[in-house]
Design a protein around this nucleic acid. Structure first.
Lengths: 165, 165
DNA sequence: AACCTCTATGTGATTTTATAACATTTAATG
DNA sequence: CATTAAATGTTATAAAATCACATAGAGGTT
């Protein structure tokens, strides 16, 4: 992947089953390296997010966890998702009250998202931290940025094309 | 206000009662110009957000509306807030499921927010649309941005100072 | 004024999202 | 093993948002 396109894992096609396998392997390695425990529920929750490859609400994840034989109460899903987001293996999309698997599990990053308002597809891009003018405004007012939520809402290429036809 | 600080209405002191009055007058003028109806509930909801000068949940707004003699069911607040956000007189803070009055009612803008995780104070800054690298990523993937949510979470100057003492 | 229409408001019920509290189990460590 | 800490399961509840439908007002037309 060239540098110019490295910042967006997006609305394009790809070999999905390989992408899932690779991502899990990568997360597994990271957990091992950091002494984190990728327990069965957590692993399954990640798998579910990767499989679907879109933003899933906590209750959708919960349904899939239950089907897989795990507990069926909300905290089961919320705890697994907390773990994943806390360690950067997944992200919470505030706009949708939903979660996506991280598309860049290897890099240390501040994620930005493009959310299609028609099909709810979500693409993740990278953002240089303290991006431009907001960083400047923060500095000017003495505000310390710890986390940055950037979510663009709009229409993805596929939906735009459909609308035109 | 000089250009250099014009982009942040922030964590600083100001003459609040004048700020409320001015903001309402400004919104009133805009509504009149555009043929929008700033009805009593809507006006009161805006007033409430301006008075508090921080992010308020819909139910907090609802409480204040009820106290002022308006209906007491959730849709009352949500509808007023919908009106205000739809026309840019207020903004929704996704991170907090809450609403703030717009700090720049006169300009056509894409707002960005700085949210203190300790005291929940919210400052609004302006952002050039299609900000930097996200705009580039969107363009590269064919995504059309319609709305941009930018919310920085961190610690405001006042809370940072308190933590140091 | 009487009528129509569209928008806005009021209200009850429900859905969706998220957390609190506490018991139980499992893993890691001495 | 025994002890401790982390993780899971479950009940209950809180918080946020929407649905559906009835009523009321504002604007325009004759």
């Amino acid at each position: 992947m060239s540098q110019s396109e490295a910042t967006s894992v997006g609305f394009d096609q790809h070999d999905h089953s390989a992408c899932v396998t690779d991502a899990i392997a990568s997360v597994e390695a990271k957990c091992c390296a950091k002494g984190l425990r990728l327990t069965p529920v957590r692993r399954k929750a990640l798998e579910v997010l990767l499989q679907e490859h879109r933003a899933l609400g906590a209750y959708a994840v919960l349904d899939l966890l239950r089907e897989a034989g795990f507990g069926s109460q909300p905290p089961v899903a919320y705890r697994a998702l907390d773990f994943l987001t806390k360690h950067g293996f997944a992200h919470r999309i505030e706009r949708l009250n939903a979660f996506v698997a991280c598309a860049h599990p290897d890099e240390n990053h501040s994620p930005a998202f493009m959310i299609c308002r028609l099909c709810d597809a979500v693409a993740e891009a990278q953002l240089p931290l303290a991006e431009g003018s907001l960083g400047a405004a923060a500095q000017a007012s003495g505000f310390e940025i710890e986390r940055l939520v950037v979510e663009a809402e709009g229409v993805c290429p596929a939906c735009a094309e459909q609308a035109n036809s």
